[in-house]
Design a protein around this nucleic acid. Sequence first.
DNA 1: ATTATTTGTGCAATCGATTGTACAAAGGTA
DNA 2: TACCTTTGTACAATCGATTGCACAAATAAT
Lengths: 341, 341
Amino acid sequence: MKSSQVTIHDIARELKISASTVSRALSDNPRISLSTRKKVKELAVKLNYQPNIVASNLRTGRSKTIGVIVPHINRNFFSNVIGGIEETASNAGYRTIITQTCEKYEKEVDNVKALINARVDGILVSISGETHNLDHFNLVKQNKIPLLFFDRVADEIEANKVMVDDFKGAYKAVSHLINEGFRKIVHFAGPPHINVYKNRMLGYLEALNDNKIQQIDGYIFHDCLTEDKGWRSCENMMKYKNKPDAIFSASDISALGAIGYLKASGYDIPGDCAVVGFSNEPFTKIMEPGLTSIDQNSLEIGREVAALFLDEVHSAEKNDYKHIVIEPELIIRSSSLKKGV
Amino acid sequence: MKSSQVTIHDIARELKISASTVSRALSDNPRISLSTRKKVKELAVKLNYQPNIVASNLRTGRSKTIGVIVPHINRNFFSNVIGGIEETASNAGYRTIITQTCEKYEKEVDNVKALINARVDGILVSISGETHNLDHFNLVKQNKIPLLFFDRVADEIEANKVMVDDFKGAYKAVSHLINEGFRKIVHFAGPPHINVYKNRMLGYLEALNDNKIQQIDGYIFHDCLTEDKGWRSCENMMKYKNKPDAIFSASDISALGAIGYLKASGYDIPGDCAVVGFSNEPFTKIMEPGLTSIDQNSLEIGREVAALFLDEVHSAEKNDYKHIVIEPELIIRSSSLKKGV
DNA sequence: ATTATTTGTGCAATCGATTGTACAAAGGTA
DNA sequence: TACCTTTGTACAATCGATTGCACAAATAAT
């Protein structure tokens, strides 16, 4: 019962050749004769030799591993992105280490350091909600490790980035509401220091503006991302003298809260108030009414950012940083469709 | 702009001491004087020294990394389990590498080999649906790498395991339906070679049996896990002469399909047909009617299996393998509540 | 003052794969 | 026969941290 770890030295000893010859034979180095290569490979299979990646990494300085940092692993959006990253990375022979920050700045710093220690070949980040200070990312650059951002990107740091055109997504959503005849449209916004939420708000404002709709005081509810806040914001706004007729929420979750309130209070959706969310969470097509939302093409984001990383690593010359913008898609469901129209 | 990689040799050179002293100082070896330790640590901080984990791993033979293999990373159940694993593992100083099989046997074998190559300190697996041959897991054991299973476990392999009491979950679900007055209960089953689905079916049968309810031919729909299959199985069964009055599905997804069909065909839920699912997916509480389901406590599964791994690694003596069974919880919603009762 | 003990460091080997260079053997040319 | 290529391997250093052992200096014991 031969066990544990077979090394090139074991193979070398058995064939009475040197370890370096074994190493070269296994990597098909043309300087090794075909007959030797064949013998080595056969014995390697027979002994079930598995190269020690750790040793190889130490020698070559590469780890064939990329580190990913996301706010939450168990959010549908992020796990899809990770799926896309993992798919593209593993096809190129890279492993993926996943870490999550739980939106905490401290954990983000820890994770960055842990990944640097692990000597990953690249770090792919979607920034935590709490993060304002970006020094830890400069640490990555100082260590000459490729750093890429996706979705929640740092404007202040030069890097390859993949982001969703949140502005356009929001613009599409609000334009759709306007086309359906809604005019008094409220916005549930996220924290404005996170680029994606800022852009969703700007898209909302632009759509209103382009359609010559006056922006109304109190029609933007800030930091409204949870189900609970969605519920209460909706409750609030329905008491306005100037009662809104539609909601564009930066989050499906708070849209869900709003719909909860509307239904509990006997309002008709979209008759009394239309609702559009953002992210196209799986539940949006299941709930009643189906929630119109913006699909961010999350799998594609993962694939793109991984591909961008591979580019950055493999292209000899230092190209300029690229910013890939993924086009989001409006998914129309009954929560925003004027009946009979 | 000092950059890239600071090593213990850099510190040693600067302090005119040897690298081994630096190494010992950093690990607080009592044989190094306090003053030297202090000097070394201060310089390490100043130079922003990060130990090269790869080198350390090579020398010590440990990688402080665990590998996880799941069928799909973007399933709510699995991403929660992974969250639990990651939380417990990282608290103990371990990193986590995530891989997914997409239910493919081939990918499972590949992933196992990749993790062995990476010299992970342990492998945590939930088996792919396609897997019948278990040889690749013996490879793990031959390499003396701790191997643990969670949720979808291999009965034939001795190992630490964390599973859900699927039998009891199903039993609870069906008993609940019976208590509510339903008697003609159909079961949407999964592939019977996967232990979790087999046990759900057995729990279903036992609950019927304990309540002296005769099992009826054609009341079990095999391999019915997708929304589409749920829809069509439901369509089928509603044509039976002996029409069922309830469904216990081994999956929330196929339960969703069934509810889709029932609503589309104007049936009342649960008046004409009650439905209970399994997994307590997030959408179950949002849909209408809310879907009664079984919560598997997925975060806890992840924590337990990671804790079991830590036990296995740190306990000097080889204890017997443990099988931890997580108690699932019945979450009752309106899809199974006889009205007015 | 001499030997034994403690304390603090350094040396060198090690983990396993990789790779520049040296070198022997085989074949070819004049 | 003498010399030059070509071909196939081996040697040894290297990546950076760890660790058994040796050993010098400082202190204590006799």
